[in-house]
Amino acid sequence: MKSSAVLLTIGQLARRAGVATSALRFYEAEGLIAATRSAGGHRQYPRHVLRRVAFIRAAQVVGLTLPQIRAALATLPDGRTPNKADWTRLSAQWTPLLDERIAALQQLRERLTGCIGCGCLSLKACALYNPADVKREEGPGPRLLKLHPNSP
């Protein structure tokens, strides 16, 4: 049997990829990875799925959402595993996202330092939670702090 034909169980893939089996089932349900089934109905993964899982995890660390990761993987021909050239092309597209996050975190750090100095945390006047009292335009009630433009 050639190494490319070696199939891994879900447990083997989880150990080698450093993720939980539940994460692999979730990735499969989301269409990010695919498994075949043994005669007994157990999931079996080709070895190349290891690289695909590594790609998914790296993209998540960058901050991509699963729909963004799915879209990136969909650009690959025939659903193949990303190679070095693919990673270079796709990761270059993520640079603006990282730049936005870095800028947002730097701005948060600057505001947080000022906030620690005043200690107010007033929802009406706090520069961290409600800069320039912009939340009053959204009506009464609590509002979420957004660390970056893509946060919920």
Rank of each mutant, 00 (worst) to 15 (best):
I69W: 07
L64P: 10
K135L: 13
T75A: 10
P131F: 04
L76S: 03
C120K: 09
P140Y: 12
L50R: 09
T81M: 08
A39S: 15
R143S: 10
R111K: 09
S91Y: 13
K124S: 12
E138L: 15
A34V: 11
A104P: 00
V61I: 15
V49H: 00
T81L: 10
L76Q: 05
N130S: 12
I33W: 10
A127Q: 14
S91W: 15
R47S: 11
V62L: 15
R16H: 05
Q106W: 01
A14G: 11
E110G: 06
A29M: 03
A72T: 08
L7T: 08
A35R: 06
P131S: 03
L32N: 01
P152T: 02
D133Y: 06
P82M: 02
T75F: 05
A125G: 13
S3H: 08
A92R: 10
A74M: 03
S3R: 12
T65P: 04
S4G: 07
P142E: 14
P77K: 00
A132C: 09
I10M: 08
H48F: 08
S3I: 07
A71G: 09
L73K: 04
S122T: 04
A125Y: 06
R111I: 01
A23Q: 11
H148T: 06
V6W: 13
A58C: 13
A72P: 01
L50I: 06
R80L: 02
R43F: 00
V61M: 10
A20I: 04
L24G: 01
H148E: 12
G139N: 08
L32K: 06
T113R: 10
D99F: 02
V49Y: 00
A34F: 08
G141P: 05
A20W: 01
A132Y: 12
A29E: 06
R89P: 08
A39G: 14
T9E: 04
L64F: 02
V134A: 04
T81H: 07
E138D: 13
L121C: 15
Q60Y: 12
A92D: 15
L76I: 09
R143I: 02
T36N: 10
A58T: 13
Q93M: 09
R109C: 04
L121Y: 12
S4A: 09
A74R: 14
T113M: 14
L90Y: 02
I69M: 07
V134D: 07
H148S: 05
R57E: 13
T65V: 06
R37Q: 05
E30A: 13
A35E: 03
L123M: 12
C118W: 03
F55V: 04
R43K: 08
R43T: 01
S38L: 06
V61L: 15
L8H: 02
L108N: 01
I56N: 01
K84V: 11
R43W: 00
Q68C: 11
G40E: 10
G11H: 03
T88F: 07
L123A: 14
R16P: 02
L121D: 13
